[in-house]
Nucleic acid binder design. Structure first.
Lengths: 290, 290
DNA sequence: CGCTAAGGTTCCGCTATGCGAAACGCACGA
DNA sequence: TCGTGCGTTTCGCATAGCGGAACCTTAGCG
């Protein structure tokens, strides 16, 4: 998604029923969406562009100006001006009075709020997750799938230090992370196979190397209820994870205990944290609706 | 916005010459937007419609179908179909396979995440807020202004029970809540006067009654650093709040301790919680950037 | 002080965009 | 067999909004 060829310049080019040549930068996959919705009368492109723009803001990188946004998204400057203008009017971006650059505003939290409120299990999990975090001294998180990522919908940590890395809304790669593999283990064979094909396509040459490790993790989960993934998602992080179902039984998620490798002994994770995690996951999955 | 009339109906009608581009810190409702951007070539209406649609989802009300969304937003069915379709494709809505209704998806958390990550003070506040929550047995929250609401950007509670009410992204009315009044106290006179005018317009007949209470709260804050607001925002909630500034010194926010009235003694709130809150607020405001 | 560069906004012609009334399809229930 | 309620599709048309290019500002630089 970084390499966006022609920045939408070809947009105008398409004469008539000429499909394709339309290019939209999208986080899921620009090309895929462009192909799929090339001439889809139901698809609202300006929306896609706007969300792509919002997506260009990355945590910790501070505010962005129109030029930077234009460069990141590949959208023409004029379009970016219009979108930032509109988003600012709507209150979802906030413009610095000093340098005029933009930043996502808390109003976005408000539209994201119903997501949190609708995840039934979150409510009941919170307290027990915190206890587990306190016991382990690590971070505990509940995550939900989104494309080929896992998104944290709940996070606890014993000390504020770890919390910096892991917060609600942050994302980890599904194939690389313990959380992702726990989720994958909860899919039925067809679904998982579909995901695998997607990964293969997405990851290219890395995939043949990665796949067996994922299968190992899934086997671990079948065997003892959790998987242990050591420094695969990131160089310095290890974690255990177990699958879990939301109250409706359909929404599948993952529960994770993890943290910096230097602070966590592998033995302890497998002997103690893992089983506790499984216990928690089972308890939550069984909890009756309020 | 609950009173549908029609969100976009007035849109096409307005025939007004270009209006001055004034920076507005306030969020506008449909009618105001329509008036202001009647023929603003920079304003992207489909975006406004889409966000309005997302806004129709309320916490705890579960999934919505296209008909319900159409009713709530006042948008024509066909338009709603197109928007839900697009948002689903983009991954921000998720459609139930059973009844076909829609729900906001965790992907929204991911776009909201940079907001959290960019609030510097949040990181340092977390641990101390939790300690205060544990000490008081109440909920502690950090909130940021958005239009005439305060949005929670951080929330701690001692027991999971209270957490149900107050979560990241939830909103409380600025004029009614302790948090809002703490924020208002941090504005300079001009800014505050502008907000007051806005309130007067928005709230109508209630305003003359409310204004003196707000002024009282602000006087309290000037006097002892915090204000105590008892069952104004909601029938059964009382809270104390103090103003606070983010590390950059410009972004103003509010810190709150509050909870159900039956569980919190007024004396205790004023004698103990309030001063502790002020102490915390001062400590955070002074904390140097990492 | 010109000169350049870089960020941002405005202009403007053009057409694909996307709107929405109305027609249609489908699943219930009576 | 109709009604009723929800959702999608169709389609003609006005216009929304796109984007290349021109046009402002600032900021730095020799």
């Amino acid at each position: 998604m970084a390499t966006d060829t022609d920045a939408g310049g070809a947009r105008r080019g398409a004469r008539r029923p000429g499909l394709a040549t339309r290019r939209i930068p999208l986080r899921l996959n620009d090309a895929e969406l462009a192909a799929r919705h090339g001439e889809d009368r139901k698809f609202v492109w300006s929306l896609a562009r706007a969300f792509e723009l919002l997506h260009a803001f990355r945590p910790g990188q501070g505010p962005l100006g129109n030029a930077e946004l234009s460069a990141r998204t590949g959208l023409p400057k004029a379009t970016v001006t219009r979108l930032t203008y509109t988003l600012t009017q709507l209150g979802y971006l906030r413009q610095s009075e000093i340098d005029g650059r933009y930043q996502p505003s808390p109003a976005l939290l408000a539209i994201a709020y119903p997501v949190l409120a609708n995840i039934g299990i979150r409510q009941m999990a919170q307290e027990r997750m915190q206890r587990l975090a306190d016991h382990t001294g690590a971070s505990v998180a509940l995550s939900s799938p989104d494309g080929d990522m896992m998104i944290y919908v709940s996070a606890c940590s014993s000390s504020a230090l770890d919390a910096l890395l892991l917060d609600i809304g942050s994302r980890v790669g599904m194939p690389q992370s313990a959380a992702g593999r726990a989720y994958l283990s909860s899919l039925d064979d067809d679904e998982r196979e579909a995901m695998f094909e997607h990964f293969a396509e997405r990851l290219g040459p890395v995939w043949p190397d990665l796949k067996p490790r994922i299968l190992d993790s899934i086997a671990e989960i079948r065997d003892r209820g959790f998987c242990y993934v050591d420094r695969e998602w990131r160089e310095d992080v290890r974690a255990v994870a177990a699958p879990i179902a939301d109250l409706d039984g359909a929404t599948r998620m993952a529960l994770t205990v993890g943290g910096p490798a230097f602070a966590l002994a592998p033995d302890q994770m497998v002997e103690d944290f893992g089983p506790r995690l499984v216990h928690l996951a089972r308890g939550l999955s069984r909890t009756p609706p309020r």
